[in-house]
Simulated scan of single mutants.
Amino acid sequence: MPVQLQFSDFSGPRYVLQGLKLLLSPGLRLFVLLPLLINLALFAAMVYYSTQQFGLWLACLQATLPGWLDFLTYLLWPLFVILLILIIFFTFTLFANLIAAPFNGLLAEKAEVLIRGQDDFPPFSMRELIAMVPRTLGRELRKLMYFLPRALALLLLSLIPGLNLLAPPLWMLFGIWMMCVQYLDYPADNHKLSWRDMMAWLHQKRWKSLGFGASVYLALWIPGLNILMMPAAIVGATAFWVQEHHSLSVRP
């Protein structure tokens, strides 16, 4: 029986709540567990490495401050800390989704089946999972190509004295947008929507997409909840797709 999406005026944050609500549905539990275990293992490794290196990274960033502004060190220190945390967050999210990409695509498939109440996808098998690996990894690499030049520009901005004060809010805005791109791409890719058309669709749904991305981004900073957010965001993004794709119109 299909899950009823009873939202007369959908907004991005409510899709995230829908994802959390459906996360432990019987038809999804197995497909949630696999990316969740990958997420946990990578998160533990990233936290351990970051705590070991954090002091060194902080010293390197503070060294970019001109000598005549040394008196501002104590005022700028919190900004440097926020900047480092944002960079670590981006790195963790990037690698977690790259490693778990085939499982994430499969989770989006099964979530769509649950929401629609009909199954138009091939039955689950190891052959199906293996067949998804080249396509999903290729798509993740496309996202990486989109992410890296923009992240590099922000990183360079972070090293320019004075202008680096703008880096934390810009990183945050970029992070919110990347949450849209990252998670809404899974159901779009399952329907063979090209990267160009998917990005055009996201721009058409800009405010709802940003609302969804901001909700995921903020939830990822909440201890405990952040572990569940990768699979919850995939399910929520699939609910977004099911509700909104009928109004898709892309540029020729």
Score class of each variant (00 low, 15 high):
Q4W: 12
D9T: 09
L17Q: 08
Q18D: 03
L28S: 07
V32F: 14
L37Q: 10
N39I: 01
N39A: 07
N39E: 02
A41V: 12
A44Y: 05
Y49N: 04
S50P: 01
S50K: 00
Q52V: 07
L58D: 00
L61H: 14
L61A: 14
T64V: 12
P66H: 02
P66T: 03
F71D: 08
L72I: 06
L76V: 15
V81C: 14
L84D: 14
F90C: 03
L98W: 04
L107G: 07
E109C: 03
E112L: 07
R116F: 00
D119I: 10
D120W: 14
S125E: 04
S125D: 09
S125T: 08
M126C: 06
I130F: 04
A131G: 08
M132W: 12
M132H: 13
T136R: 08
L137K: 06
L148H: 06
L148A: 13
L154T: 03
I160V: 12
N164Y: 02
L166R: 02
L166N: 08
P169M: 01
P169K: 12
P169N: 02
M172R: 06
M178Q: 14
V181N: 05
Y183H: 10
P187Q: 04
N190V: 04
L202E: 13
S215C: 11
I222G: 09
N226S: 12
I227T: 14
L228G: 07
A232L: 08
W241E: 15
H245S: 06
V250S: 12
R251Y: 01
